[in-house]
Design a protein around this nucleic acid. Structure first.
Lengths: 346, 346
DNA sequence: CTGAACATTGGGAACGTTTCCATAGTTCTA
DNA sequence: TAGAACTATGGAAACGTTCCCAATGTTCAG
């Protein structure tokens, strides 16, 4: 690989001049610049990032930690980060957890890995991390932004939609359609955003005169498998409900699948509401009505906040994110359906 | 950030000695090593990758280009690459295309970007790239491996399941269930692996005495939207069929969604077969029977081949990949169903 | 006791940039 | 026309490693 010295030699100029042409800083006589550019072309010279990083102390590299790359939730986030970053000539390096056990250790290791790789900044998503973990990590690399979760000790570096409100929106959607008997398929209790949306849902129910005690909640794990199994458990429990609120779309899809298997048609016999409005909601059978979280805006704001920290730029950052529901086909009025337990074919 | 000089000074040793302890090469007296390690601990020293790269000429970084991160096809690939790489202390940097128009230019730019970032090697997936593009790119960085597609000029760097055979497997699955009237929802004609699986499907049909002319094929785009629209077009065309072969799961899911909307129950009235056996097949409604491609093995083999090139390791590489079908609920015998066009409720 | 073999150590050179300073040449001002 | 103010240029220093060579100390065979 040609170096800038080769370029300088070929162009018959000094090292400094060649460098000035490459980086575009400082003044160079037009004729000289042209000669240098020709040499660059001829040698197919491209500056070494390693050398630049060494000198500048900046790698132009942002690390992203994602607990698991499965399902449709995280992919748009990565896509967004990559696009934004690459537009600015920087790049993204990713570390994934591999799911299953010991997520906390995985998260710590993953983030550590990214820090060791000299990332200028980090974007972290994890429910398994504890407050003290993030604090410890932050000591090594203060440029951290957290998505979809808030740590009290660093609120201004956390970007998260108001899931308490999101839960309320979900409840309203169902109440609006005259539903009064509910079931809930919740995410894991360890997930902060899950508990917020469930709490929001229950609060709104209470506010509208429905006793949260009457709703049967099953805790699951955000996966379609979990949704499927929860739907099964729900039906087995003989609890009466005309609508199910699922804490994310993946579980809703799993539930849809189970209902279909048992001949309980949606929405004719049960209404189903999803959450997140991810791609899996769009073409499920039936298409899933879901609470829409503007994840793109959340991501961009978080990223911008990070870039502002790392490179003192002044990118716009937004802290409030509107939540609404995307209406599709999985919800109808209950007088058009009979209670789920009434005639399950199972 | 502490440097190795600080470590040496604090430990009261020379630069070389400190370096020997850090890298674990060369001999150091146990007592000295201990002092150095303590200094490392105390200063929280971590070696600079930039400096190492500069000296060694290797970044320990593998670039991955993916045309678009949407749906469930590419995510397990990324997950696999990340896990394998990270286990070896290396890391992955990703560049995505943003879909839509001009995929070829996007792919070239994306790969160029990765090359400029000094990746030691590249994994590329793209149907839009031309033979000459990959050749040109290969001149700049010869360590390239291509997944799920084969370029004639670099067969040994391409890892791809035998989709011609995959298509045949698909046909057999349907024929086995007594189907004789078919429709096909195909991927884009520009996609090499798509045309292979369709050709394989048709060949097998012919071999078993069915005229491929009698099957109605609709070209689509691998997306659920496309599958949905194609299913609609299929029904509108009044073509008779008892089974649909979809060239990937995403389109199959879209088709399932459309069939559900129009009351055409699957598999009672139409059988649907997917391809790739991705996660979207697992919890669709009904669960989708799909041709299983061992994508993990393909990915690992490709990656290993690349690592062998980059770091002359001797990781195992596999070139033949078994294809079979994962049976779920979307296929049944046609005498249990009536031809799709017979009574569409539409 | 002597010299050879070996273990341990210190420090300079090099990797490929950018930045800064010094120098030379050129234009402008009074 | 003298000097000031620029512009254009070359090259040394520095970034943080690793590798190599030289130097020192230690052990051991004869």
């Amino acid at each position: 690989m040609a170096t800038i010295k080769d370029v300088a030699r070929l162009a018959g100029v000094g090292l400094g001049t060649a460098s000035r042409v490459v980086s575009g800083k400082g003044s160079v006589a037009p004729a000289t610049a042209k000669r240098v550019r020709r040499a660059i072309e001829q040698l197919n010279f491209r500056p070494s990032h390693a050398a630049r990083s060494l000198l500048s102390g900046s790698t132009q590299m942002i690390g992203v930690y994602i607990p698991i790359l499965k399902g449709t939730f995280y992919t748009p986030i990565l896509q967004t980060i990559d696009a934004e970053l690459r537009a600015g000539g920087r790049h993204m390096v990713v570390a994934f957890g591999h799911g299953s056990a010991d997520e906390r250790r995985q998260a710590i290791e993953g983030v550590q890995f990214l820090i060791n790789r000299d990332c200028d900044g980090l974007i972290v998503m994890s429910n398994a991390l504890l407050e003290k973990d993030i604090v410890a990590l932050g000591r090594e690399q203060p440029n951290i932004v957290v998505l979809n979760r808030v740590f009290e000790s660093m609120r201004d570096q956390c970007f998260c939609a108001d899931h308490l409100h999101g839960g309320a929106v979900a409840a309203q959607a169902l109440l609006q359609h005259q539903h009064r008997e509910f079931a809930v398929i919740a995410g894991p209790a360890s997930s902060q955003d899950n508990v917020a949306r469930i709490a929001g849902f229950m609060n709104e129910l209470r506010r509208q005169g429905i006793d949260p005690q009457t709703v049967r909640t099953i805790d699951s794990d955000f996966s379609p498998e979990g949704g499927w199994a929860s739907a099964k458990a729900l039906l087995a429990s003989k609890h009466r409900f005309t609508a199910v609120f699922c804490a994310n779309d993946e579980m809703a899809v799993g539930a849809l699948s189970y209902f279909q298997e048992t001949g309980l048609t949606v929405p004719q016999r049960v209404s189903v509401l999803g959450y997140d409005d991810t791609q899996s909601a769009e073409y499920s059978a039936p298409r899933l009505t879901s609470v829409h979280i503007p994840l793109r805006e959340v991501t961009v704001s978080g990223l911008n906040c990070l870039l502002n920290r790392c490179y003192d730029s002044l990118l716009p950052v937004q802290r409030e994110f509107p939540i609404n529901v995307t209406w599709r086909a999985s919800i109808t009025m209950p007088h058009q359906q009979r209670s789920a337990t009434a005639h399950p074919r199972t």
